[in-house]
């Protein structure tokens, strides 16, 4: 880029012509215009008052169950609409009235106020510095290094107590992030419904959300669902592209994955039947069902953990073992690729 600037020092610049002459408004000189402006302001204030009356009236008289049809808005709750527009009018017109008043009837002549540099006089500043030095010296901090150091230790440590006191906010994670309620022989039950399902209950191309059957009398918590949710997908067995071990984890074309996204824990709920892809609606990580939920797109770094399933003696689907890796998003202590 060419250097196009000239040094401006000593060059005659354009002159500041100063504040332009003030042009008076019509209402400043014309009494009729001023009176008209006054009436306009009054009308605006009255419109606000009308808005308040409308608000109160609609609060009392309009049935909250009444819906009316309006163009653009569609079916709208009449009470909500009347209350809101009334409130809006009562506020808005006060504002417009005040601004109109200020613009038409209050003085509109610009005034000039001088600024002063914030910097104090040199004398004050050196006095200030001297005072600070003197006062600080009076405390003797510079000379008494024992006090300085011990104070440093005390002040450095004092912040620890509040941190320690926060310790009881929650329990330690222990193995909680790595374990689920899935174990060998645990039945898969539908969610919602809680019914055990047979391998034949699922059509080819369909998807079902299942949870582990909990022992009688145990209540299912949201924390459980947050780790245990599993998605069953049935495709034609020949469409699988799995190694022998993973293939043995499927049953009759049914494959089971953790529904909790390996990226940030959202529910991976979108299944594209044609492509056999699972998609997480949060960040669009896409997993290929036929290849053991391999990540084919998006920010997820790991496949969804696969659950080994089979059937028990009564033909109901069961887990053959617990998940072999932690489900859900990564964490520091996570010990597998």
């Amino acid at each position: 880029m060419s250097k196009e600037i000239d040094s401006l020092s000593g060059v005659e610049r354009f002159e500041d012509p100063g504040l332009p002459e003030h042009k008076h408004r019509k209402s400043d000189s014309d009494a009729i215009a001023a009176n008209r402006a006054e009436r306009q302001v009054a009308i605006l204030f009255l419109l606000s008052a009308l808005g308040t009356v409308g608000t109160i009236a609609s609060y009392i008289f309009i049935d909250t169950k009444k819906f009316i049809y309006l163009p653009i808005l569609g079916d709208t709750n009449a009470a909500q609409l009347a209350l809101g527009t009334g409130l809006a009018a009562s506020l808005f017109f006060i504002g417009i009235a005040a601004v109109h008043w200020a613009k038409t009837l209050m003085p509109d002549e610009e005034v000039i106020a001088e600024r002063h540099e914030f910097r104090s006089s040199d004398e004050d500043r050196s006095d200030f510095v001297k005072t600070v030095k003197e006062r600080a010296g009076a405390a003797g901090l510079g000379r008494r290094s024992l006090i300085k150091r011990s104070m440093g230790v005390a002040l450095g440590l004092v912040g620890l107590s509040p941190l320690v006191l926060l310790r009881d906010l929650g329990p330690l994670p222990k193995k909680e992030l790595s374990t689920t309620n899935w174990a060998s022989g645990v039945r898969l039950v539908t969610d919602p419904g809680g019914q055990p399902i047979k391998g034949t209950d699922l059509e080819i191309g369909s998807v079902a959300q299942v949870l582990p059957q909990l022992p009688e009398g145990t209540e299912r918590s949201l924390e459980n669902i947050g780790k245990d949710a599993v998605l069953l997908i049935r495709i034609r067995p020949e469409e699988f592209n799995l190694n022998a071990e993973r293939l043995s984890w499927t049953y009759n074309g049914i494959i089971a994955f953790s529904k909790i996204c390996s990226h940030m824990g959202c529910a991976v709920a979108l299944y594209e039947q044609q492509t056999k892809h699972l998609l997480c609606p949060c960040h669009q990580s896409t997993f290929d069902v036929t290849r053991a939920a391999k990540v084919i797109f998006g920010p997820a770094a790991r496949p969804l953990p696969q659950l080994a399933i089979g059937v028990d003696s009564e033909g109901y689907l069961v887990a053959k073992q617990a998940f072999t890796e932690p489900v859900g998003p990564s964490f520091w202590e996570r010990n597998s690729a």
Partner: peptide
């Protein structure tokens, strides 16, 4: 006045 205008517009949106 401007405060009331902002409040009025927000209330209208809310309505």
């Amino acid at each position: 006045g401007f405060f009331f205008i902002v409040f009025g517009v927000t209330a209208f949106l809310g309505a």
